[in-house]
């Protein structure tokens, strides 16, 4: 069978940043959880750090086009996602693992990932192959036909990562993906994330500083809904002095920037 490479597949991108936010404000319930955030994210793995209640999850949910920004501009893949617009093009290129990853217990891993592939409007003929590849990448190939309710917490997380990457997203949003993974799985997860970050924009929200040190090319530190710091893990480590609280250089940098507000 002859396959023709479409011009759209090799077309240059028309935007400078995969994610660009200016003065972004997003409401979570009654509080303004993201309050005047300026952020630019390109390719690579971006570790989103911050204390509890800093607005990490709200920021990720607005990037996932679930929450509508209250004001400011937010562009994902060069398309504004703040107004009442057609979001389908952006959403087709998104992968999202929510913090509370909910799933249908009676579905098998394969059925669930296939359902998400259908929700993401993937072409029918690509679905079985893409599902198999996503399941293999997270190391669940041998359990692909087990029901989700029979899996352990770590395996469910990996199934969640599989559904997020099934469409080869250009922007991948992972909210606390390492919660519930054992140390070995966490190392494999970091390798996978680094691989994904080589050709897409991966945003990983985490509270584990060692995840950031090991896997991220870029650290985004937010507090009270504002950007406090953006730079490489080494730059974050350089901020901390010997007097700051923390066991590792990055932890000391983190507490130096947040003024010990743990």
């Amino acid at each position: 069978m002859a396959r023709v490479v479409d011009a759209a597949e090799v077309a240059p991108t028309g935007y400078a940043w995969q994610v660009e936010a200016t003065g972004l404000r997003v409401r979570a319930g009654r509080t303004m959880a993201v309050d005047g955030l300026d952020l630019r994210l390109g390719r690579g793995v971006h570790g989103l750090l911050g204390p509890n209640g800093a607005g990490k999850t709200t920021l990720i949910r607005s990037l996932a086009t679930v929450l509508r920004p209250a004001s400011g501009t937010l562009e994902v893949l060069g398309e504004p996602v703040s107004g009442r617009l057609d979001l389908r093009r952006v959403r087709r290129a998104l992968g999202y693992l929510p913090q509370d990853f909910g799933y249908y217990k009676r579905f098998t891993v394969r059925e669930f990932v296939e359902y998400v592939a259908w929700l993401k409007e993937m072409p029918k003929r690509d679905v079985p192959g893409a599902v198999q590849r996503a399941v293999e990448r997270v190391g669940l190939a041998d359990r692909a036909d087990s029901k989700l309710k029979t899996l352990s917490g770590g395996m469910v997380r990996r199934a969640g990562i599989a559904q997020a990457i099934v469409n080869d997203p250009e922007v991948l949003l992972l909210d606390e993906p390492t919660a519930g993974l054992d140390p070995g799985q966490r190392v494999r997860f970091r390798e996978l994330v680094q691989e994904l970050g080589s050709d897409s924009c991966v945003v990983v929200s985490t509270h584990l500083v060692e995840d950031v040190a090991a896997a991220c090319t870029d650290v985004v530190l937010i507090d009270k809904g504002r950007l406090v710091f953006q730079g490489t893990p080494d730059e974050l480590a350089a901020v901390g002095g010997p007097d700051d609280v923390g066991d590792s250089p990055i932890e000391r940098g983190y507490s130096a920037l947040l003024g010990g507000a743990w």
Binding site: T65, R91, Y104, L119, K120
Partner: peptide, 13 residues
């Protein structure tokens, strides 16, 4: 719907 959050972030929603 446990996967509500996921469903509403997809183009099919």
């Amino acid at each position: 719907d446990p996967a509500h959050e996921l469903v509403v972030s997809t183009p099919r929603a």
